[in-house]
Design a protein around this nucleic acid. Structure first.
Length: 368
DNA sequence: AATACGGGGCC
DNA sequence: GGCCCAGTATT
């Protein structure tokens, strides 16, 4: 049977080139590899945890989170039987919280369907929530030396330059080319080592802004370097348009407790706890604060008296940026509105440690 | 193919 | 302030 596949935009290197490339890369990696916590063991569970945490997250950010996490949950089974709120608590500040929920769910699936042993089968791994093509390839190659390719930020940049491919790397044509390259470059054995060496080279030498071509083991094989194009490849991504908005967060106090709400399912920070927040017009201050008292009364049934403004936080969030003004409120009367669909609780400040909070919520909790 | 999903590192 | 980061799932 014949399948019509779109031809690759440019030709892939031949076998002799690939052999030279692998040899130079591995020689360099033997000398230059960083000592990272998840490289000290090939336990598939640890490899898995690291790969999930490293999705869209830099190595230096992940390191402390990884160490705490595997200490708290050393095995798949330990993770599977943990409370989700404890898992989220250890994920606090890392972002993309769906990763933590999906990893927790996947751990339970591994216990039920694979007797608690991380599966070696490609399709079984891909079937786990939160594991896509990259992460499956990374785990299978690093933990089991399966001959599986990977493609991620570092190797996209590396391959684009080596091949002098200046098309958009995330479009389907670019992805086809780069995944094909990722597969063709693999050796027969020690696949995990090679995949990690590719990422290490992309991260440490073939850097985004300032490629260190003088220190690169494959400089002589790099087509972008040969043409002097290394600083123009890959082409920068089109920037998303941000929406700017203002919100107010309120610390409402009553008898030594503060009011928390749980963020609704389906939205941002789903299921995490937070201080009540209200969208505001960025207008004059007195009117804003009067509106705020009314918002709180309508939404919670509480009558509050606002104290001083505590601080203003700017934080960048995907696709919009919030300026958050934090007010202190004292609860004068009223009770929590039962009809409101968001769960709310009065909590002692000491109890806040037991609840997974949004990042800004955690910052606010230190004021409580 | 486009979009939602976070927060911090680093210039 | 902007750009980027060991991507995945959904529409």
């Amino acid at each position: 049977m014949s399948r019509e596949s779109t031809p690759l935009p440019i030709a892939l290197p031949d076998a002799a080139w690939r052999a030279r490339f692998r040899r130079a890369l591995l020689r360099w990696y033997a000398r230059a590899a960083r000592d990272l916590p998840w490289r000290r063991s090939r336990d598939p569970y640890r490899v898995w945890v690291s790969e999930i945490m490293l999705q869209q997250t830099q190595v230096t950010t992940v390191e402390p989170y990884f160490n705490r996490f595997v200490r708290a949950f050393p095995t798949v089974k330990a993770l599977a039987r943990a409370d989700e709120s404890r898992v989220l608590r250890l994920w606090e500040g890392l972002g993309y919280y769906r990763r933590a929920r999906q990893m927790h769910q996947a751990a339970q699936a591994i216990v039920e369907q694979h007797a608690g042993r991380f599966p070696r089968d490609r399709d079984a791994v891909r079937a786990l929530p939160g594991i896509g093509r990259y992460t499956a390839g990374a785990i299978l190659s690093i933990a089991f030396d399966a001959r599986e390719p990977i493609l991620e930020a570092n190797t996209i940049r590396l391959f684009c330059r080596v091949l002098a491919y200046d098309g958009p790397p995330h479009a389907s044509q670019g992805q086809a080319l780069l995944w094909a390259m990722a597969e063709r470059v693999l050796p027969r054995r020690e696949v995990g080592r090679l995949n990690q060496a590719l990422m290490e080279l992309g991260s440490e030498v073939c850097r985004n802004r300032t490629p260190q071509c003088d220190a690169c083991p494959v400089e002589a094989l790099c087509e972008a370097r040969r043409r002097g194009l290394e600083s123009q490849i890959p082409r920068p991504k089109p920037k998303p348009v941000f929406e700017y908005r203002h919100e107010a967060a309120v610390l409402i106090r009553r008898r030594g407790c503060v009011l928390l709400i749980q963020r609704p399912e389906g939205g941002r920070w789903a299921g995490l706890w937070d201080f009540p927040r209200y969208a505001l017009d960025a207008e004059d201050d007195t009117r804003r604060r009067a509106e705020l008292v009314e918002h709180v009364r309508r939404q919670t049934g509480l009558t509050i008296e606002l104290g001083s403004r505590l601080k203003t936080i700017r934080h960048g969030v995907t696709r919009y940026r919030i300026t958050l003004e934090c007010y202190e409120g004292r609860c004068l009367s009223g009770r929590l509105n039962r009809g409101h669909n968001r769960p709310m609780r009065w909590l002692h400040p000491a109890e806040l440690d037991d609840y997974p909070l949004s990042t800004t919520g955690r910052k606010l909790s230190r004021l409580a």
